Each structure stands twice: as C-alpha cells, then as structure tokens.
Simulated scan of single mutants.
Amino acid sequence: MKSRKPKVSVCIITFNHEKFITAALDSILEQDIDFQIEIVAVDDASTDNTHDILNSYSRKNPEIVRIYQNPFNLGPYRNFLKALQLCSGQYIAICEGDDFWISTSKLKKQVAFLDKEADYAGCIHDAIVTDADGRVTASSYCNHLQNKFDLKDSMKSLRGRFPTCSLLVRASILNDNPPQWFTSHACDTFFLYLAAKTGYIRYMEDKMSAYRIHSQGTWQGSNNTSRRRGLLLQEKILWSDRKMRTTCGEIIRSRIQVLSHEIAVDENESKTMRLHALFLRTRHGFSNFKTIRVSLGILIRILR
C-alpha cells in the first residue's frame, strides 16, 4: 500500500499571478516521477483571477493540488513561512507563481541525488531567464565553478546568485525550532542558509527551470536603493543572531559596510538630481517671492 505522505512538497507562493500561474502548475504536473508529490499553493489575497485558476487545478487534481487563500495580504515573507509550514513531504521544492520548470526530470534528478547523498541538505541548479511573455532573455542565470557549498560558501557565493525555482531541500531542516532570523524574515536566501547550516548544498549545471523577470515582481519591481535597503536589513537580522555572527561575522560585517556605502551613494545622487530639477524649475522664476519661498523650503528638505 502506498504511503499517503508525499515524497516532495512543491511550495508555491503567489500574488496576482493570473498571467503566469498556469505555466507554473503545468510544469510541475508534467514531472516524470515515480513518487508522490503535493503542490501547496498559498495565494496572498490576490485581487485578480489567480485564486480561481488555482481552484480549477485543485478540482482537476484534488489528490495533488492543495490551495490556501489568505483572507488578507500577509506580504511575501509571512506568506512564504506559512506555505513552508503547510508542506508535509520529505523534501520541499520551491516554484514561485511567476516562474516555471522546463525539465520534466527536474524533481527526479534532485531527489535521486539527495536520496543518495546524506550529507547534503539541499540542491540547486542553473536556469534560463525569461520576460513576462516567456521569451528567453538569458540562456543562463548562474554559472558557479564549484558544485559543493557549505554555509560560508553559500553566504559568499550564492546570495542572489541562485534561481529560487531551482531549490529543493530536506524538509527536516524545519524540524528543530528555526532561528528567529528565519522566522521573522523568511525568504529564499535565508531558506538556503537554513539548509546550509545542516548540510552541504549541491549545485547542478543543468538548466531545469525558468526564472521570469517582469515589472510586477516583488523584487524586480523595486528600484536599486529599495533593493539595497532590503539586503541591508537581511544582513542586520543575521548579525543580530549570535551563532551566525560567530560563524560568518566577517562576511556579514563586510556586506553591511558595502551596502551602507552604496545606499549613501544612491542618496547623494538622488539629492543631486533633485537639486538639478529644482534649479531648472526655478531659474526663470526667482522674481516671484512665492517661488523663492517654496524653492527654499524644498531645498532645506533635500539637504537634511
């Protein structure tokens, strides 16, 4: 008799992905596997037809597709943590609602590797990059020279350099109380670090998924300064953890310094641009006392 517990839980977090979610679900259901899987899809209160599409897949595949809809928007970190906690498989694979897989043997290859190599806690691989319409914009997302990463290697080389849709980890990394830095800021990078704390990470050169870049993406839709502020917050959260500070303190401290400097440069450039715009707006109107007063007020705010 087959066990009801799935071998792999495929974790999907989604928000307003009606244009993309079908490709994600189809690519998972088309996997060539001889083990059970479940799809755990958590919709973060989408305002488009994402949830309706998810429901239609659940009705067609009730034994595989499990759908959850948040009554209100939790945001990407809390939604990701919720989705992970709902997974029941031996392994957890990640496929966000706007990405998709391009190899029907993706899960088979990754699971076979982790089944064989007990000292590895996770596995990632290369991917292609596409635009919103699925057109290929880059034939490779990453090209790592090594294929075995411990925690320090992961922090040095894999931060922002692995496609989320490639990640497969042992679910057991969540068994012991996860550190506060993860539960408070659950994201793909921290999930990788959590795996790397318990075992090695394997990198495969195979391109088995597609990472989609589009303007509606949580990360791609933000500007460089916002991204750097988000990265800086992550590093400060890691720094607050004594164990992480002891193990990887030099890496974290260096990143905090670099990001702080880059943000300062961004802010100075922004001030320069705003001052230039103010000059262009007022250079022909300084005879007007009201214009002078308003301009001085704006100038004081910019220089603060």
Score class of each variant (00 low, 15 high):
residue 3 S to E: 09
residue 7 K to P: 00
residue 9 S to E: 02
residue 14 T to W: 04
residue 16 N to R: 10
residue 17 H to R: 11
residue 20 F to R: 06
residue 24 A to R: 05
residue 27 S to P: 02
residue 28 I to Y: 00
residue 29 L to R: 04
residue 30 E to L: 07
residue 30 E to G: 05
residue 31 Q to Y: 03
residue 33 I to D: 02
residue 35 F to M: 01
residue 47 T to E: 14
residue 51 H to R: 09
residue 52 D to S: 09
residue 52 D to L: 08
residue 53 I to S: 07
residue 57 Y to F: 11
residue 61 N to T: 06
residue 72 F to Q: 14
residue 73 N to W: 07
residue 75 G to A: 06
residue 76 P to E: 03
residue 78 R to Y: 02
residue 81 L to W: 07
residue 82 K to T: 13
residue 84 L to C: 07
residue 85 Q to E: 13
residue 86 L to I: 05
residue 89 G to Q: 04
residue 92 I to W: 07
residue 93 A to F: 13
residue 94 I to A: 04
residue 101 W to S: 00
residue 103 S to L: 01
residue 107 L to C: 03
residue 110 Q to E: 10
residue 131 D to P: 05
residue 132 A to F: 07
residue 140 S to I: 05
residue 143 N to Y: 08
residue 146 Q to H: 13
residue 155 M to W: 02
residue 157 S to D: 12
residue 159 R to E: 10
residue 159 R to N: 07
residue 162 F to C: 04
residue 163 P to V: 02
residue 172 S to N: 10
residue 178 P to W: 02
residue 192 L to F: 04
residue 202 R to Q: 08
residue 203 Y to P: 04
residue 206 D to L: 03
residue 214 H to N: 07
residue 214 H to T: 02
residue 215 S to T: 10
residue 223 N to T: 04
residue 223 N to A: 08
residue 224 N to P: 05
residue 225 T to Y: 06
residue 232 L to C: 05
residue 232 L to M: 06
residue 245 R to F: 12
residue 247 T to S: 15
residue 254 S to L: 08
residue 255 R to W: 01
residue 256 I to F: 03
residue 259 L to R: 11
residue 264 A to K: 14
residue 269 E to N: 15
residue 272 T to N: 14
residue 273 M to E: 15
residue 275 L to M: 14
residue 278 L to V: 10
residue 279 F to K: 12
residue 281 R to Y: 06
residue 281 R to H: 11
residue 284 H to T: 12
residue 289 F to N: 13
residue 297 G to E: 10
residue 301 R to W: 03
